[in-house]
């Protein structure tokens, strides 16, 4: 098999947020992302799923270096960008851009759409105003907006159009990677379909790579080539889309997928209901973070920390049930 080019990767990335007491002393940490390793290949869509609070958005923000990782490295095109300063980061910003969830709050209400787009170009060194305008106009056409929209304010647009503006802003610097943080979850189904189709068209045109963060499984399944499942800051399972759905290995991923409703009234589904609530990321459980809710948990699960290991070339899982090295009783 041909080796795929890795454009962006994280190596054991952790993101801990300090909790301070009244005297400003750090008393504990919120372990939002804990040792996540993943690779994003050129031209692929990597879906990142998990429940609220599992750290998927934090990971996205760390990969784009809105946050500096507490531990581990973020590597872009072979260069380590994890601890660069704001100034040094600037030349890499062109490469990785982000589309946010809420199209209503991620655009400045006091700037016209044209200015929103041209500001990006100005910062990144396009000096000539006419040139900036020309590029911005082209971008508007590319995302399916009309030239007159250049002179309008964000409030004059519908949700779907605003998300198109957000996309135009992300694309205007010709990035290689776009991190999409729940780009369609605030939109109606008919608009959602328009944006998803647009994302796919743009990907084909420019060989873009997407990190697609979402909680809607059917959308993620539709758009992704590979999917990673996160739980409490850890990556539990990673596989190619078809493989993940046909051969789900991790008990958490099994429960998550079984909860997804399908738009087919004839289908009877067996749901796996998880006991209890999500543990706090301040004091995550010892061993495997999922063992407190896992229906198959054994004594060893609370002692040893599972690592993400390949079960075949398309599939990785972090679970002691499948790891013979750490757990002699594994299948």
């Amino acid at each position: 098999m041909e080796e795929k080019k890795v454009v962006l990767s994280s190596e054991h990335v952790s993101q801990f947020f300090p909790i301070k007491n009244g005297f400003g002393q750090v008393v504990n940490y919120v372990k939002a992302v804990d040792g996540v390793t993943l690779e994003l290949h050129e031209g692929e869509t990597y879906g990142l799923v998990g429940e609220t609070g599992c750290g998927k958005s934090t990971l996205g923000r760390t990969l784009i270096r809105l946050l500096e990782p507490t531990e581990g490295n973020v590597v872009l095109n072979g260069e380590d960008i994890s601890h660069l300063s704001e100034k040094e980061m600037r030349k890499y910003r062109k490469e990785v851009q982000m589309v946010f969830q809420d199209p209503y709050t991620s655009l400045n209400p006091r700037q016209k759409v044209g200015d929103i787009l041209m500001e990006v170009l100005e910062i990144h060194g396009v000096k000539d105003k006419d040139e900036r305008m020309e590029i911005a106009m082209k971008m508007l056409a590319k995302v399916g907006l009309r030239p007159e929209h250049f002179y309008r304010y964000p409030h004059e647009f519908s949700g779907g159009q605003r998300q198109r503006v957000g996309l135009a802003r992300a694309l205007i610097l010709n990035p290689k990677v776009i991190i999409c943080d729940e780009p369609v979850s605030a939109l109606d189904v008919s608009i959602q379909a328009q944006i998803i189709n647009l994302l796919q068209d743009l990907q084909k045109e420019d060989k873009l790579s997407y990190l697609f963060i979402a909680h809607d499984m059917s959308v993620v399944k539709y758009i992704s080539d590979r999917i990673g499942v996160m739980y409490l800051g850890h990556l539990m399972e990673e596989a190619e889309t078809e493989e993940l759905f046909s051969n789900t290995l991790h008990p958490y991923a099994q429960a998550l997928l079984s909860a997804v409703p399908n738009a087919n009234p004839h289908e009877e589904k067996q749901r796996i209901v998880l006991e209890g609530d999500l543990p706090s990321p301040i004091n995550p459980p010892t061993g495997c973070v999922f063992h407190t809710r896992c229906p198959y948990a054994k004594a060893i699960c609370s002692e040893k920390i599972p690592v993400l290991k390949s079960v075949n070339e398309k599939h990785k899982v972090a679970c002691l049930l499948y790891d013979k090295d750490l757990n002699p009783d594994a299948e």
Partner: peptide, 21 residues
Amino acid sequence: IKSIPRLDGDPNERLYMIKGT
């Protein structure tokens, strides 16, 4: 119905779009 991606659907098929808003 056609505009939502389905779990048992074909990922290579384009999603149907209702035009306009």
